[in-house]
């Protein structure tokens, strides 16, 4: 069975370690926060200018001056700090953020990522993604394995305008966990009930397959 969005988020959360400063992108990455163990010492960064994101507010706590980069209302944790966009991206480009988790339209064998525009069709802008992928120590992409019309989003070479080159470390989809290595994409895990053959079939990029492929633990 392919994983649900929540299960994908839960799998990605296992890549977060105590002491990490983490930046979460919009969509499934935002859900990852729900699966970080409560007692784990992790601080969430929001690129609009905050360290220490807390849970969503109750109706009474809503504050229009307090939002995350997805423009959602949030709360602050004890020990939070606020700062300007310059300071925010100084810490991002400066390599202080341990991990960024973001969505993508395409990822390829070189660890290139495309996630901000489809020429002539869709224009969102890159936001902070180009800075995050060059600055964060680890970059994880969490996304659907194939597009709505069934074509692979994991390619030998990205076709859309790039967000960054050679920056992605790990890809988590509803079917598999794939590591970007110097030699190409290595299949690490398959989703429960999903065969390696099904993954190969859904992936246009070449996958390195060895005997140690594990089942994803959700």
């Amino acid at each position: 069975m392919a994983l649900t969005r929540e299960q994908m988020a839960s799998r990605v959360a296992k890549e977060i370690h105590a002491g990490y400063y983490v930046n979460l992108g919009i969509g499934i990455p935002t859900l990852v926060a729900n699966y970080i163990p409560k007692d784990m010492d992790v601080i969430l960064q929001s690129e609009n200018g905050m360290l220490g994101i807390g849970p969503f507010p109750t109706e009474d706590e809503i504050d229009p001056d307090l939002i995350n980069a997805g423009k959602q209302t949030i709360t602050e944790m004890p020990g939070s700090s606020y700062f300007s966009a310059t300071e925010s991206f100084a810490m991002i480009r400066g390599g202080k953020v341990d991990l960024t988790i973001l969505g993508a339209m395409e990822v390829d064998e070189n660890g290139d990522i495309a996630n901000w525009m489809i020429p002539g069709k869709k224009l969102k802008g890159m936001g902070g993604a180009m800075d995050l992928v060059v600055g964060a120590k680890h970059v994880i992409v969490v996304m659907q394995h194939v597009t709505k019309d069934g074509s692979s989003k994991i390619l030998p070479k990205c076709t859309l305008p790039l967000t960054g080159t050679g920056v992605v470390n790990l890809i988590v989809t509803e079917l598999a966990t794939i590591k970007v290595t110097k030699n190409g994409l290595k299949l690490l895990e398959h989703a429960p009930g999903v065969s390696v053959d099904e993954i190969i079939k859904a992936t246009k990029a070449k996958l390195i397959i060895d005997k140690n492929i594990k089942e994803m633990v959700i």
């Binding site: 966009a85 925010s88 991206f89 525009m117 890159m126 902070g128 180009m130 800075d131």
Partner: peptide, 9 residues
Amino acid sequence: ATPQGTLAE
């Protein structure tokens, strides 16, 4: 279209 950190800088 300008990356956010580049725009800030």
